[in-house]
């Protein structure tokens, strides 16, 4: 009985939270349907999809979205791979050294990216990485990795070591233990890390802006700024673009939810 009441309260709270979170987006939705949108919230005089047609019809936007997908999946993959490997080692062999390693890389992330980009630019020109999407994938992976490694280590910490030891008895090597035993259990964590890396790369403006010059390689985060002209912001187009721009990450999250609940079931079974 009490449980049922609690459940009702939970749904009520969730509804309130959802409303609070949606309200700020209301402006974006209304503006995207308005031919003369501006910064103030208003009901469009006439609802139109022109903003969307305009944004989608622009070939440079299509290309930019594609570029951003390549970049973000590239970063997500790199980070997922490298951080799972590193997180595993750092979780299973904790020592003063590994902890020092973790904190060092983690503290470096307080350095604002805008400052970091200056020396990175010089490095990229020297290494001939300038104007290459591959180069940016590596750089963004580098800045996302410290967080991700830290997160992965903690997720793996929660997996009891006994499970692996059982596998080791069965003759499985490290790689196998990680790949077959730990990775599936820590899948929700991997998803979390991957989504974060994807979104970080997807939303990053400064790095691709400074490190790429060819218009054909422009990222969506950069082309979006054409709706953000200093003299006249085209808010309607901007809002439509933003909605389309938010879709991939939200979609990934929904997709990952599936793995997350699966991960829940599996670890529950193992522990129970």
């Amino acid at each position: 009985m009490k449980r049922r009441i609690n459940r009702k309260i939970a749904y009520l709270l969730l509804t309130v939270i959802a409303i609070l979170w949606v309200l700020p987006i209301l402006w974006m939705v209304l503006a995207s349907l308005d031919g003369n949108a501006n910064i103030f919230i208003k009901i469009p005089d006439q609802i139109t999809l022109d903003n969307f047609f305009r944004v989608v019809g622009d070939t440079s936007n299509q290309l930019a979205m594609l570029n951003s997908l390549v970049l973000s999946f590239g970063v997500a993959f790199c980070v997922m791979f490298a951080s799972t490997l590193a997180g595993y080692v750092l979780s299973r062999y904790q020592s003063r050294t590994t902890r020092g390693y973790l904190y060092t890389i983690l503290f470096m992330t307080t350095l604002p990216g805008t400052v970091l980009i200056v020396p990175v630019y010089k490095m990229f020109v020297m290494l001939k990485f300038y104007d290459r999407i591959g180069g940016i994938i590596i750089f963004l992976s580098a800045t996302t990795l410290p967080y991700s490694i830290w997160m992965m280590k903690n997720f793996i910490d929660n997996i009891p070591i006994e499970i692996e030891e059982a596998a080791a008895v069965d003759g499985a090597g490290y790689w196998q233990a990680l790949y077959h035993v730990v990775a599936p259990l820590v899948l929700p964590g991997i998803c979390c890390v991957a989504i974060r890396a994807f979104s970080a790369a997807w939303g990053d403006f400064m790095t691709p802006y400074i490190l790429l010059s060819s218009p054909s390689k422009a990222m969506a985060s950069v082309t979006m700024y054409k709706y953000f002209d200093a003299f006249s912001v085209s808010y309607g187009n901007l809002a439509a673009f933003s909605i389309l721009y938010s879709i991939p990450s939200v979609f990934l999250y929904i997709l990952a939810q599936k793995f997350m609940s699966k991960g829940f079931a599996m670890s529950g079974a193992n522990k129970g």
Binding site: W21, G203, F205, M224, F228, S242, P248, V250, Y253
Partner: peptide, 16 residues
């Protein structure tokens, strides 16, 4: 639904 709504703010580009 709720998860995605909360996510939107996070995945949106900062300017937006």
């Amino acid at each position: 639904v709720v998860g995605s709504i909360v996510m939107i703010g996070w995945v949106m580009p900062e300017v937006v």
